[in-house]
Simulated assay, not measured.
Amino acid sequence: MSRTTPVEHINYWRHPSLSGIELSQAEFTHFSFDKHVHLDYHLGVVTQGAQQFINKGSHYQLGQHGLSTLNPDETHDGQSRDAEGYRVKVMSIPVDFMNAISQEMGQATHFFNAPIVDDPALYQYFIQLHNLLTQGQCTELEAESHLLNFMQLLLTRHPAGILKLGQDQGLSSQQLKLIKQKIHDEPWQNTQLEGLANEVNLSKFQFLRQFKQATGMTPHAYLKRVRLELAKKSLTHGTLVVDVAQQLGFFDQSHLNKAFKQAFLLSPVQFQRRML
């Protein structure tokens, strides 16, 4: 029997013993992710159908048996490859957590060379781990043991690469770092294009073009996404929605609600109820 209505559904979880780690499971048919970034590492698998996305200008397809390995602050989008849609399981790993594991293993700060690794064994292990953590029927010892074992296997089989910025990036790596740091440090500010351009001694037009060339996003889209990612973290810690909106520079709670739902398919209140 053919599906008559599109399915767009997402659920979020947080295991009580794994602070900062966010789990989600979704089914999408027509929903499409605009270009965006994350503050954390995002690992994910597709369990039905396939997802296609663009990462740093290259096209990829994530099907069954592949593991998505997206670095923080890496611009990408996402949509279903086929009309039937796809199902996906995702785990968000905080940077501090990843760095701690890397250091324990004697590795440098981790950077995945590619947004997908073809590793059927890790694919199956990730599904088992995700199910274990979202079903909420495991002890703290069991949860931490399986997570750390999975991360050790992942970082051993796919060790850290070297971050290489293209020569035609427009902004230098130092300039880009400066601008991004300013946005991350002061997300609540009513940031002006001219102010950002002045930071790197460029005209507004030059800065806009070069920032988009370097990141794949406009400064406004980048700032908006950083605010939304930070909103998720604040909501996870129980901050009231109205306070989150005020603290992160949204016009009001309604403005946050609209942007949040557009990005994550849930309202801030719905997300918070799932995470607390």
Rank of each mutant, 00 (worst) to 15 (best):
F250I: 00
K35V: 05
Q48S: 15
H237E: 14
P115T: 01
P94G: 05
H15Y: 07
H42E: 07
I21G: 01
F126A: 00
P159L: 09
Q169S: 15
A221C: 04
G49V: 10
L18N: 13
Q174I: 06
H36F: 08
L276E: 12
T215K: 09
V7W: 00
H110R: 13
L129F: 05
Y222N: 06
Y125D: 04
S172V: 02
G238N: 08
Q152K: 13
L248Y: 11
V244I: 00
R273M: 03
G66N: 07
H30Q: 11
F53R: 04
I179K: 04
Q262K: 09
L223Q: 14
H36I: 05
H65W: 05
H38W: 05
V37H: 08
V269M: 03
F53H: 11
P219M: 14
E229D: 14
L122K: 03
R225E: 12
Y86I: 12
S80H: 04
I93N: 01
D252R: 10
F53L: 10
R3I: 14
N257K: 08
A259V: 01
S2P: 15
L23M: 06
Q79V: 09
Y12H: 11
P6N: 10
T29N: 02
Q262E: 11
S102N: 05
V46Y: 01
K233P: 00
